[in-house]
């Protein structure tokens, strides 16, 4: 039975994985030392490690976003929540204990996510509109917390979260793996995955089957907020400062892109956490590649745009149909 399961995931994850591999190989041509990993002071260094390390905030946010998109939703406030949580941690740390700062930063994320979930599930406001509020207000709140300045943080434990090494690997990687495993656990060891995929695919039938969609929606948005907060801590810890204006700017777009590349449809239903991770890694590799080729880094945006359209067209049934029809017509004419 497991074989079927494997086969199935493999199919969905195949294309993003191939694309990722292709880009990695491409990098090898540009930079022959791309795959080299050095060991300095028991720490691993190298381009691959670097890409992995840098992509962690995006990976975590994308994982949260995957759940939201699985229920035909969207959360465009993740960037703002990321900024708020970083700012909160920084502000509290100025006078208080670091652990308190971490806990409060996470709680802030949960509260933001819960707020979004409340608007979507109870008030039945369209997800995009509901999260738009926090997107707009969020940056303002973050700036309010930081007082409009970039707060710098001077704490060893905190900077360890962003830059430290554990068993040779950068610490953020462990956080990323932990979040990923937690979500896998939720999907495979509780009924959340099943319920979420059901309501994302067919809301009416799910209600007939006794699922209570509101609770699941609330849960999913809360998790998404929490993920954004975790990413916020990592981002701010990485540079030891909280920038309310620029931290996580546009990360919501990258996250949506990562989810879609990973094979989860914007129309909800099945979701693929592994695919999302690969999608996020792909985006990071893409940026890194373009930087290392040395051409204008802004072309990343153009490439992203084209990739999004292409992926969505592939997912669009009417596109495939008209494509197929085109082929048919040609045959009938000849």
């Amino acid at each position: 039975m497991k074989q079927y399961l494997l086969k199935f995931t493999r199919q969905k994850i195949f294309w993003p994985l191939t694309a990722l591999a292709l880009f990695l190989v491409l990098n090898l041509f540009i930079d022959p030392g791309f795959f080299e990993i050095e060991i300095k002071n028991n720490h691993l260094f190298g381009s691959l490690i670097d890409i992995l390390n840098r992509s962690i905030p995006l990976v975590i946010i994308s994982i949260g976003m995957t759940l939201v998109i699985a229920k035909e939703g969207i959360d465009i406030s993740v960037g703002s929540v990321l900024a708020i949580s970083g700012a909160t941690a920084a502000a509290i740390m100025e006078h208080q204990n670091i652990w308190l700062a971490l806990i409060v930063a996470l709680i802030v994320g949960i509260v933001c996510g819960f707020w979004n979930g409340l608007l979507v599930s109870v008030f039945e406001i369209q997800p995009m509109v509901a999260t738009l509020i926090l997107l707009v207000v969020g940056r303002g709140i973050a700036q309010l917390i930081t007082g409009g300045q970039i707060l710098t943080m001077d704490n060893e434990i905190y900077s360890f979260i962003g830059t430290g090494f554990l068993f040779g690997f950068p610490f953020p990687i462990y956080i990323g793996i932990f979040v990923f495993l937690m979500m896998i656990f939720l999907k495979k060891r509780t009924a959340m995955g099943l319920f979420l995929e059901s309501i994302g695919n067919n809301m009416t039938a799910s209600k007939f089957a006794g699922i209570q969609p509101k609770k699941i929606i609330l849960l999913v948005y809360t998790i998404c907020g929490l993920c954004a907060a975790i990413a916020g801590i990592i981002v701010s810890a990485n540079v030891s400062s909280a920038d309310a204006n620029n931290a996580g700017l546009w990360i919501e777009l990258d996250a949506i892109l990562a989810v879609v590349i990973g094979g989860t449809s914007m129309r909800g239903g099945r979701y693929f956490l592994g695919g999302t991770v690969v999608g996020a890694l792909f985006i990071q590799t893409l940026s890194t590649t373009i930087y290392s080729i040395g051409i204008n880094p802004q072309i990343v945006m153009v490439v992203k745009a084209l990739v999004v359209i292409l992926v969505c067209l592939m997912q669009s049934e009417s596109f495939r149909r008209s494509f197929a029809n085109m082929g048919k017509k040609k045959v009938s004419y000849t």
Binding site: I256, I299, M301, V302, V303, A305
Partner: peptide
């Protein structure tokens, strides 16, 4: 999604 891509495209 489409206009998001349009946004990327325009900025890029």
């Amino acid at each position: 999604i489409v206009t998001l891509a349009g946004m990327f495209l325009a900025r890029g």
